[in-house]
């Protein structure tokens, strides 16, 4: 028997997604591509990465089964393969949502490879990546990190600059996502038709982004 409870979803999806009335989420495909472009720019791809001397890039995810992580990484990899052939991607680092696990794994990648960049798919991987690069000292001096999601520590790290700071943050629009889903929920309960899936583009935040804009995209802990 199907329940008549309407379900509205924001952010990560699930395998029961087709039973959901409306789902608002960041566009992970666009986000993954934006991350690849931001990382290539930060690494100075055109000048520093050549066919003779390829650049190694590590990718950190929280879990291999989280839909958002998987979509972002797939798009990132597709973009790198298509546009940046002189980048070698290492096997994924799985943080299990734990900064220290990500940190240990990135430390291995830094030690074993001539690492030029890290794509940290979420907050815990960014946290682990910045710590690993900071702890690596001079060995980490040329490593660029692109993070995802505007966690307070991510933004603080980017603004602070220096060793192990983030070069860019791909940010969703959580405030807008939340406002939209409430609007759709009200509309759906009034019997109006609402979009089944609405994806919002992500914003690329850079160290040069004004503080007022950064504040707008920073995630607020409840």
């Amino acid at each position: 028997m199907r329940s008549h409870i309407k379900v509205f979803n924001v952010d990560s999806g699930s395998s029961y997604q087709r039973n959901i009335t409306s789902w608002v989420t960041g566009n992970n495909t666009q986000g993954g591509k934006a991350a690849a472009d931001a990382l290539a720019t930060a690494m100075n791809y055109t000048k520093d990465c050549t066919a003779a001397k390829k650049c190694d890039v590590a990718i950190g995810v929280s879990s291999l089964t989280t839909s958002t992580d998987a979509a972002r990484v797939a798009a990132f990899k597709a973009e790198v393969t298509a546009k940046y052939p002189n980048i070698t991607m290492l096997n994924d680092v799985v943080s299990q949502s734990q900064p220290s696990v990500a940190q240990s794994a990135f430390a291995q990648d830094i030690s074993a490879h001539n690492l030029a960049g890290i794509f940290a798919v979420d907050g815990t991987d960014a946290e682990g990546a910045t710590a690993a690069v900071k702890a690596a000292g001079s060995a980490g001096a040329s490593i660029k990190i692109v993070g995802y999601d505007g966690y307070a520590n991510n933004i603080a790290s980017m603004v602070a600059g220096g060793l192990g700071s983030l070069s860019a943050i791909i940010s969703q629009q959580p405030t807008l996502e939340g406002m939209l889903i409430i609007k759709y929920a009200v509309a759906a309960l009034q019997g109006k038709k609402v979009p089944h899936l609405q994806t919002l583009p992500n914003i690329t935040l850079l160290p040069s982004t004004p503080a007022s804009v950064l504040a707008k995209y920073q995630y607020v802990a409840s």
């Binding site: 299990q96 949502s97 734990q98 900064p99 220290s100 696990v101 940190q103 815990t124 946290e127 682990g128 710590a131 900071k134 702890a135 520590n153």
Partner: peptide, 16 residues
Amino acid sequence: FYIRSGSGAATTGVTN
């Protein structure tokens, strides 16, 4: 782990 990462996380030692 706090000293290593420069912050405390609720997932430390739990999710792994």
